[in-house]
Design a protein around this nucleic acid. Structure first.
Length: 472
RNA sequence: GGCGGCGUGGCCGAGUGGUUCAGGCAAGGGUCUGCAAAACCCUUUACCCCGGUUCAAUUCCGGGCGCCGCCUCCA
């Protein structure tokens, strides 16, 4: 398996720290405002990476975080006249809801910054004692020039950074390059006690503290958005490696590309965001995932409604195929998956998680599976491979619940003169009734069944293998 | 200005030094079909420009043009 390591900027053979185990930390959001389409892309990209690693037999420990104390959260709270904790609580709930609906598997560890203040203080203290940080005016700063490796991730050198760096009013840096590890709190801001007085953590320190606490120094993979390479991840490396007097903090750095809108990066500060929950209100979660996965994770992807429509159509093609197998009453799970298909999938994914290539493999398999079914041949091995692949990508069709239609279905059953029962049983009975009517060329009854079910949003499809239904 | 990336057919998007082809969507034509769909088959000026290396370049090298990201908070 080869992955593109931002540290070194090259494809490298992936070798876990401990055989058979992978430790994976991904930078989660700062919960300052509602999630947008870009956040979803990141979450899905690493969800698939995690699922794929597991599928290959590796035991993955996946940790991500919620940064729930930070300048922008405080600013948002002050604008609204509520506490920072309230903004963080509400926004966190939105992110977790969006992730859940996107079928992002919950992490093994979900770390909140505000629950790791002691670890951060401990890390900062160690940096001070080792001469890499200094308190000043109630703040604590990291002394960038004390860490020779600074810039190795983002390809910058310290002397060229000076021109852009500056000291904001109220800061007490010795060097414009330095960054805050701890900030003295102003009245009304969140505050914790510390050896340097009441204050709150800087933005970069929480990931260093939380990742190391859960996964240990020198863990396997650290992920995040490409826009975090500098300064956030560069600073994480500096903090952790300076404190440990060891390297590397992280073996492999993976960064996902940005989502753009009309060619520009979607971001809060530009104001060109499309809400993730809004998108999920109008598109099926699996279609959104497919939209994301059509490009390899490092490439930028353009958001446009038409592209979601395309993804919806592509998803229908996948699910239609799988429904044919359901109608044919086969049991793919019991079959041996088609080895060539799985091998092709694996080689695409082993090439830096090339989901675009992997989807090509999947669609090829679907065409072949459909062809076999048309010919009346055995498509079960293809279907079994399809099931594995769509499970790894989490774009398989979820079981449809008809529970909310129970009353309506009973009413139809009564009108059509059959007995009621569970919603699924009624639908099955109606399909049987219609099949008998069709055999007797009583198309009026057959069409009535189709129409009645269509009114509830249930579509019937007739195929050589039988009739299937789906909603919507 | 510095660092990094990208430029493929109507749109999205993989990939490769040469042989038949990614794949999806859209469009057109067939086959099948009680209806409605789905499916299968066929089709539609691909590789930004200019040099170079090579028997052969979309693929490697150099230059140019264009676009994007980071250099300030950002997934």
């Amino acid at each position: 398996m080869r992955v593109y390591n931002t540290l070194g900027r090259e494809l490298q053979e992936f070798v876990p720290r401990a055989p058979g185990k992978v430790s994976l930390y991904v930078c989660g959001p700062t919960v300052q405002s509602a999630p947008h389409v870009g956040h979803g892309r990141q979450a899905v990209a690493f969800d698939v990476i995690r699922r794929y690693l597991q599928w290959t037999g590796l035991a993955v420990r996946y940790v991500t975080n919620i940064t729930d104390v930070e300048d922008k959260i405080i600013a948002a709270a002050q604008d609204e006249g509520v506490t920072a904790a309230e903004v963080a609580r509400r926004t966190t709930a939105q992110f977790l809801e969006a992730y859940r609906r996107l079928r992002v598997a919950p992490p093994d560890g979900l770390a909140f910054a505000t629950e790791h203040i002691p670890e951060m203080i401990e890390l900062i203290s160690r940096l001070i004692s080792r001469g890499h940080a200094y308190p000043a005016g109630g703040d604590v700063y990291f002394a960038v020039r004390s860490f020779p490796g600074y810039g190795k991730l983002s390809g910058r050198n310290v002397d060229e950074l000076v021109s852009g760096a500056r000291i904001e009013p109220g800061e007490h840096k010795r060097d414009p390059l330095d960054f805050a590890l701890w900030k003295a709190s102003k009245p009304g801001e969140p505050v914790w006690e510390s050896p340097w007085g009441p204050g709150r953590p800087g933005w970069h320190i929480e990931c260093s503290a939380m990742a190391e606490k859960d996964l240990g120094f020198g863990f396997d993979i650290h992920g995040g958005g490409l826009d975090l390479v500098f300064p956030h991840h560069e600073n994480e490396i500096a903090q952790s490696e300076a404190a440990a007097e060891s390297a590397p903090f992280v073996r492999t750095w993976l960064h996902n590309g940005m989502v753009t809108l009309r060619g520009e990066k979607m971001s809060k500060s530009l104001g060109n965001v499309v809400g993730l929950l809004d998108l999920l209100a109008s598109s099926r979660p699996e279609a959104v995932r497919l939209f994301y996965l059509r490009a390899q994770y490092r490439q930028p992807i353009e958001y446009a409604p038409d592209l979601l429509t395309e993804a919806e159509a592509a998803l229908d093609r996948l699910w239609s195929f799988r429904r044919r197998l359901g109608a044919a009453a086969v049991v793919p799970d019991a079959d041996v998956p088609d080895a060539a298909v799985l091998q092709a999938f694996r080689s695409a994914m082993d090439d830096d998680f090339n989901t675009a290539g992997a989807l090509g493999v999947l669609f090829d398999a679907v065409r072949e599976g459909n062809r076999l079914l048309d010919a009346g041949e055995d498509a079960n091995p293809i279907a079994a491979a399809y099931d594995e692949i769509t499970a790894v990508l989490a774009i398989d069709e979820p079981a449809t619940s008809l529970a909310d239609l129970a009353g309506d279905l009973d009413a139809i059953a009564a009108r059509m003169g059959i007995s009621g029962g569970s919603p699924d049983a009624v639908v099955t009975a109606l399909i049987d009734l219609r099949s008998r009517a069709r055999s007797g060329r009583d198309f009026a009854v057959a069409d009535t069944v189709r129409r009645e079910l269509a009114a509830l949003g249930i579509t019937l499809e007739d195929g050589a293998d039988g009739t299937t239904w789906h909603r919507p």
